[in-house]
Computed example of a mutant assay.
Amino acid sequence: MYKRHALIAAALATVCAATAAADAPKADQEKCFSIAKAGQNDCAAADGTHGCAGQAKADKSSADWKYVAKGTCTKAGGKLTASK
């Protein structure tokens, strides 16, 4: 039974590590607030309303963000910092 638990734990750790690596920004990306559509944000809300990607409740929420190529955020109508 313990081997089974160890295998499950190892599999979950691998999935979590792969997900965390995918969420990390590349050197040519920046956080862009107020452009994410509902359910398409990249990580936790700046105001603490949720803690994970894909949990934005509304389009273009000022607390939710997506990674975009550097220099394109404001051109797309977004902001580089969260609104208060």
Results as ranks from 00 to 15, higher is better:
residue 73 C to H: 01
residue 50 H to I: 09
residue 13 A to Y: 06
residue 64 D to E: 13
residue 57 K to G: 12
residue 28 D to S: 03
residue 82 A to L: 05
residue 82 A to V: 04
residue 27 A to G: 09
residue 79 K to W: 10
residue 24 A to C: 13
residue 1 M to Q: 13
residue 35 I to Y: 06
residue 75 K to A: 04
residue 30 E to H: 00
residue 66 K to T: 03
residue 28 D to Y: 01
residue 63 A to Q: 09
residue 9 A to L: 04
residue 32 C to G: 06
residue 59 D to M: 07
residue 23 D to N: 14
residue 38 A to P: 08
residue 49 T to Q: 12
residue 18 A to F: 05
residue 44 A to D: 13
residue 8 I to P: 08
residue 77 G to K: 05
residue 43 C to M: 08
residue 8 I to L: 14
residue 58 A to R: 13
residue 42 D to F: 00
residue 64 D to C: 13
residue 30 E to V: 00
residue 62 S to K: 06
residue 30 E to P: 00
residue 38 A to Y: 00
residue 2 Y to M: 14
residue 36 A to F: 01
residue 77 G to I: 01
residue 47 D to S: 11
residue 57 K to L: 10
residue 22 A to Q: 07
residue 47 D to R: 10
residue 25 P to S: 07
residue 6 A to Q: 13
residue 25 P to T: 00
residue 22 A to N: 04
residue 17 A to E: 15
residue 26 K to D: 05
residue 3 K to L: 15
residue 28 D to I: 01
residue 18 A to M: 08
residue 11 A to Q: 09
residue 76 A to Y: 03
residue 13 A to G: 06
residue 62 S to M: 13
residue 44 A to P: 11
residue 35 I to T: 11
residue 18 A to Q: 09
residue 1 M to A: 15
residue 57 K to P: 08
residue 69 A to Q: 03
residue 76 A to Q: 11
residue 48 G to L: 02
residue 11 A to K: 08
residue 12 L to W: 02
residue 64 D to W: 06
residue 11 A to S: 09
residue 40 Q to G: 07
residue 24 A to R: 06
residue 12 L to I: 11
residue 55 Q to A: 12
residue 38 A to F: 03
residue 80 L to G: 08
residue 25 P to M: 01
residue 18 A to S: 13
residue 64 D to F: 01
residue 73 C to I: 01
residue 58 A to C: 14
residue 38 A to G: 12
residue 73 C to K: 00
residue 7 L to W: 05
residue 53 A to E: 08
residue 72 T to I: 03
residue 43 C to N: 10
residue 19 T to L: 14
residue 30 E to S: 02
residue 15 V to F: 00
residue 82 A to S: 06
residue 24 A to W: 01
residue 65 W to F: 08
residue 48 G to E: 02
residue 50 H to S: 07
residue 31 K to R: 11
residue 52 C to F: 13
residue 12 L to E: 12
residue 8 I to Y: 09
residue 47 D to L: 07
residue 20 A to S: 11
residue 1 M to Y: 15
residue 5 H to I: 07
residue 70 K to E: 10
residue 14 T to D: 14
residue 74 T to C: 05
residue 79 K to I: 00
residue 35 I to C: 10
residue 51 G to E: 12
residue 78 G to K: 00
residue 29 Q to P: 05
residue 38 A to K: 14
residue 45 A to R: 14
residue 42 D to Y: 00
residue 8 I to Q: 15
residue 41 N to P: 03
residue 15 V to Y: 02
residue 63 A to K: 04
residue 17 A to G: 09
residue 11 A to G: 11
residue 20 A to T: 05
residue 60 K to T: 12
residue 49 T to W: 12
residue 68 V to Y: 03
residue 46 A to S: 05
residue 45 A to T: 08
residue 47 D to N: 15
residue 80 L to R: 05
residue 55 Q to I: 07
residue 68 V to N: 03
residue 15 V to D: 14
residue 49 T to I: 11
residue 35 I to M: 07
residue 56 A to W: 01
residue 46 A to C: 10
residue 84 K to V: 09
residue 26 K to G: 04
residue 46 A to Y: 04
residue 60 K to M: 12
residue 52 C to W: 11
residue 20 A to W: 04
residue 15 V to T: 13
residue 55 Q to L: 11
residue 64 D to S: 10
residue 22 A to T: 05
residue 76 A to L: 04
residue 84 K to W: 10
